[in-house]
Simulated scan of single mutants.
Amino acid sequence: MGRIDETKDFIPVRVAVLTVSDTRTAAEDRSGDTLVERLTAAGHVLAARGIVRDERAEIAARLRAWIADPEVDVILTTGGTGLTGRDVTVEAHRDVYEKEIEAFGTVFTIVSMQKIGTSAVQSRACGGVAGGTYLFALPGSPGACRDAWDEILVWQLDYRHRPCNFVEIFPRLEEHKRRK
């Protein structure tokens, strides 16, 4: 397992949280609340928050808008990662990814297996990068959001985490655009 290098300074990242649901309102968004509570408790900044319907084009449009916003470093979505016909968050994410972080889904499944057993196979949680922004699609339950944050994201979004983390490579995510 990794560790926190206390000789390094913590670097807060700016995180946008998007809930995907046809039925939830801001007052009922327990999964979004869970993510906001955890990311702010960890010292990060809530850059934006919203709710969109389970419509692929609407989800992708919101993701693209936040990717284009220089005040957003990371986007966390919750909801729409299952297997039903209305679950299109993963497809919307993949519409905007430049690179997928395949291991995120694998590690999330391993974490989920420890909590919910083989029911973990029903989640299609995923992660990727676009426009220098990290994006992660999480299931719509508060428990799954806690698991993703507590077991994976809190560490990978902490610059002090060793042996490596997502924050330290932010400057290199778009290095291909600087090539001549």
Rank of each mutant, 00 (worst) to 15 (best):
T106K: 15
S112T: 09
G85K: 14
P142S: 05
G80C: 09
W66H: 02
E98K: 11
G43H: 06
A61Y: 04
E100Y: 07
H93L: 15
V107H: 10
G140M: 07
A47R: 02
E102Q: 13
F104Q: 03
T81S: 12
R64Y: 03
A103E: 11
A57E: 13
L76H: 00
G140R: 01
I67V: 15
F108T: 00
R64T: 10
G82A: 11
M113P: 00
S141P: 05
G79M: 06
E71T: 15
G131M: 07
V74I: 11
G143N: 12
V88A: 11
C145V: 13
E55T: 08
G117A: 05
T133F: 05
A47E: 00
A60I: 06
I110S: 13
T84P: 06
V107F: 14
C145A: 14
Y97I: 09
C126T: 15
R49N: 10
T81C: 09
G143V: 08
A125R: 00
G79F: 03
E71D: 15
T77S: 14
S119V: 04
H93S: 14
A48P: 01
I67P: 10
A130M: 05
L46K: 11
L46F: 09
V121H: 07
E71K: 14
V96P: 06
R94K: 14
S141G: 08
G79N: 03
F104Y: 13
D87Q: 08
G43A: 05
D87P: 02
T133G: 09
G132R: 01
A47H: 01
D95L: 06
L76C: 06
H44A: 07
I51W: 02
G140P: 00
T81E: 12
T133V: 15
P70A: 12
G131L: 09
T78E: 05
S112F: 08
L138N: 11
L63R: 00
V52R: 05
F136S: 08
Q114T: 13
G117S: 07
R86Q: 09
F108Q: 01
E102Y: 14
R86S: 10
L83V: 13
W66P: 00
G79H: 01
L138H: 02
D54I: 06
I101P: 09
V111F: 10
A57W: 00
C126K: 02
D69G: 05
D69F: 10
I116V: 15
E55C: 10
G117V: 04
G128P: 06
A47P: 00
A144F: 07
G143I: 06
R124L: 13
G82V: 07
T109Q: 14
S141V: 07
V96A: 08
E98M: 12
T109W: 11
R64C: 10
G127T: 04
A125G: 10
C126S: 15
T89P: 01
I75V: 13
C126Y: 01
F104I: 03
E58S: 15
Q122K: 12
T78A: 13
R49Q: 15
G82N: 07
G128M: 08
F136P: 03
L135I: 13
Q114E: 15
K115I: 14
A144H: 03
F108S: 04
A65W: 06
A47Y: 05
A68R: 02
A130K: 02
S112G: 12
A120F: 05
